[in-house]
Design a protein around this nucleic acid. Structure first.
Lengths: 220, 220
DNA sequence: ATGTACGAAATCGTATACGATCCATCATGC
DNA sequence: GCATGATGGATCGTATACGATTTCGTACAT
């Protein structure tokens, strides 16, 4: 009858809205309101919020309520740093399993990225950029690492604000670095080298943000 | 009146029991039973289980129920691999903040470890080993990474089985590798080098397990 | 004007209740 | 004997209800 439970529906709904930015950080999540909108009672909504809390997407205060995790520059940058580490590992682990078709798709996506550079649209760039990296690490044989990458992205998406959407010139470098990464993968470079390159690519972006925030570059 | 909510009590209770091994993997968590034991209704227990599910400690199947995440050799090893990556990064990031006192404490713990080698007790060794590593990475400036390390340990503790408690000879190597790591830290080696050493140390343990399971060593 | 006390409204936390679903057991037919 | 289908019990999923707690506005005293 019902394919998914109401608590899962609530979880998906809220999760999507936070990721899409429809629910801005700091927004107050009132149980009754959400329940009314979903056409259910508060119990499933509470469960959904508990899950979101465990993932760090919302803050839950006893007897006060839940709010979308607030934008915290520091946390945002820390999450990026974490992601650079995890995604580097994921890419290295997935590399031996990449088929020529996978690489071809990744190259095609990167060409699309290159085209967006002339008429830059941050949202589209981010979207394609995610697709590019996902293509490289998606068949990582360690599901645990893959899960962490996905969670990391969810957090970043939830916290993304206009102030971080674009660092001038970074997009051009990014596309070029993608080329380098693809070449490494095509030549079957050792795992360690791939990991270093993938992480460095992410760290470069992180450092661009850090520099914009007047902070020293990442130590790793 | 009530310091913590019942759902948090339930969460803590179950979390502790799983970590301590009192609840073995595969154990069926029946809402009503747990609720009765806690002296509360099922609603808070459900919330607690949702949180545990989000952390990967329990499996939750719709209309069927929750079970403690089952022992899965593959998942166990994957979690170790993940931890080697995260903990390496955490150690590298924490290294510049280590005080001589911190290093002294770590050395003392490693000496305790060395002493246990003569009359080997796997449980005590594991406990001290955790203390040693925690001393090195505990003041990692990236709370997100630190959180992942803690969660990784919780998962490993929850899944630990007798079959993985001990790989012959590994403990001796481990203590020696600790010495090497301490020396690196004392001389203020670059972050990259520390990360590699910390990760390699973990990867060696992982590979010992993999070898025992007749599998090839980790690629990273 | 500022701070405090109080009361009302909003919201949370959880017990209870009951329908929905699943699983095990047993009966039935082949 | 084995497959198939019915039945009862166990368990889950969630609506509802109500007490507990916080928050906010208002009145009052300083």
């Amino acid at each position: 009858m019902m394919a998914t439970s109401k608590s899962e529906q609530a979880y998906t709904l809220l999760s999507d809205r936070i990721a899409s930015g429809a629910l801005v950080p700091g927004y107050r999540l009132v149980l009754g309101t959400i329940a009314a909108e979903l056409g259910c009672s508060v119990v499933p909504v509470r469960e959904a919020i508990r899950k979101l809390e465990a993932e760090g997407l919302v803050l839950f205060e006893r007897n006060v309520g839940a709010t979308v995790a607030s934008v915290d520059t520091e946390l945002y940058l820390h999450t990026m740093q974490t992601l650079s580490v995890i995604e580097g590992a994921a890419t290295a682990l997935a590399a031996p399993l990449l088929t020529p078709e996978d690489l071809g798709r990744a190259r095609a996506i990167n060409e699309s990225l290159r085209q967006t550079l002339t008429d830059f649209d941050p949202r589209r760039f981010t979207e394609l950029n995610n697709q590019f990296h996902a293509a490289l690490y998606e068949n990582c044989p360690n599901p645990h690492i893959l899960d962490l990458v996905h969670r990391g992205w969810a957090r970043l998406a939830a916290m993304r604000t206009s102030s971080f959407d674009h660092v001038p010139g970074r997009a051009h470098h990014s596309v070029a670095e993608h080329d380098g990464l693809l070449d490494l993968l095509a030549t079957g470079a050792p795992a360690e080298e791939i990991e270093r390159a993938a992480r460095q690519h992410r760290t470069n972006t992180l450092n661009a943000y850090l520099a914009a925030a007047g902070q020293p570059p990442s130590a790793i």
